[in-house]
């Protein structure tokens, strides 16, 4: 009897799938929901809150894209992925885009056939140690036991860094950030290494964050960004320019608060093009004119999203640093909307 339920579900699933096999954009529109891959839980970047709602910096990107495409920032199905499953999930079409603090590297872009649509967080790998260990530099870590998340670039950077400095270490591979926490806190490893943003986020969840220090060394470049499958350029454009819209919005001073009024008041043509009151940018993307307006309306511009999720006022307390606008000396530099 139950066999047939399964078959039935399969049939239904098959029918649903058969309906749509065109580009990702059409798929998403037909489905009415954006499938967005995120981490299984990293406070500040993507984690379900007490009500089971996903919150975070990466989550905000997903919501912005959903708002731009579907008109509803909540029309997102968040798919938690691990370091192991994230790429297969994307390659197999289980998710439409991946926003899982994923480092943009050559081999992922070229060999794994993905398309990184930009950088939403410029990061670097760092080390966190308990303060009472008395370590002030990563170069003092010879012989230490290090917890690393497997399947990440940090694993390779770590091997390179220790080899380059002629130091030895004992790697303890961990599947998720959640599993790393107890190991590190109970002292089963001396050092926890991952992206600095991840370290800050992890530390923020500790009972006594002050007992742990993040060492000054940054051993790698970790540009984190959303990515999509290779080959569907239309879809890639939408994700890329949604992210750029958020960045540009901050640059030109469009916020979620003045969003409705600024288009009428401003003389800045780029704002008008961005918000769709001038030009046909939305149409070129295959969307309507107000796509960017909706994207910004969900969680605000890049700066607002940053401040709300990982900024200095949050538990994570990340400074803007490299992630400031280029005009402020940071690396955020969106191509013009023209």
């Amino acid at each position: 009897m139950k066999k047939s339920v399964l078959l039935g579900t399969l049939t239904v699933a098959g029918l649903a799938a058969g309906a749509a096999a065109a580009g990702t954009l059409d798929d998403v529109k037909a489905r009415g929901v954006l499938n967005c891959g995120v981490t299984t839980g990293l406070v500040g970047f993507a984690a379900p809150d007490a009500n089971g709602e996903w919150q975070g910096f990466d989550v905000a990107v997903c919501r912005a894209v959903a708002a731009a495409v579907l008109g509803d920032g909540n029309a997102v199905e968040f798919v938690p992925t691990t370091g192991k499953t994230r790429f297969t999930a994307l390659a197999s079409g289980e998710i439409d885009m991946l926003a899982r603090n994923t480092t943009w590297t050559f081999s992922r872009d070229v060999d794994l056939k993905f398309e990184f649509t930009g950088v939403n967080y410029y990061d670097g790998q760092g080390f966190m140690v308990p303060a009472d260990l008395g370590v002030s530099s990563a170069l003092e870590l010879d012989g230490a036991t290090v917890c690393i998340q497997t399947g990440t670039t940090t694993e390779l950077n770590l091997a390179d860094y220790f080899a380059a400095n002629g130091m030895s270490y004992e790697p303890v591979p961990i599947e998720t950030n959640a599993e790393a926490q107890p190991l590190y806190l109970e002292g089963a490893c001396d050092v926890y290494t991952t992206d600095r943003s991840g370290l800050l986020a992890t530390r923020a969840a500790f009972e006594n964050p002050g007992d742990h220090v993040v060492l000054p060394e940054i051993v790698s470049k970790e540009p984190l960004g959303p990515l999509v499958r290779h080959g569907d350029n239309d879809w890639g454009d939408i994700v890329r320019w949604t992210l750029n819209a958020l960045i540009t919005a901050e640059e030109v001073g469009v916020t979620s608060e003045n969003l409705d009024t600024i288009a009428g008041e401003t003389k800045n043509a780029e704002i008008k093009r961005l918000l769709g009151t001038e030009g046909t940018l939305g149409e070129m993307l295959g969307l309507d004119a107000e796509w960017a307006k909706r994207a910004i309306a969900v969680g605000g511009n890049y700066g607002e999203i940053f401040d709300a999720n990982i900024g200095p006022d949050t538990a994570i307390g990340a400074e803007r640093g490299y992630n400031a606008q280029w005009v402020d000396g940071g690396l955020l530099y969106s191509p013009p909307f023209r």
């Binding site: 799938a17 096999a21 297969t88 999930a89 197999s92 079409g93 289980e94």
Partner: peptide, 8 residues
């Protein structure tokens, strides 16, 4: 996922 029709 690789063994199922694309889009499934």
């Amino acid at each position: 996922a690789y063994f199922l029709p694309p889009g499934t």
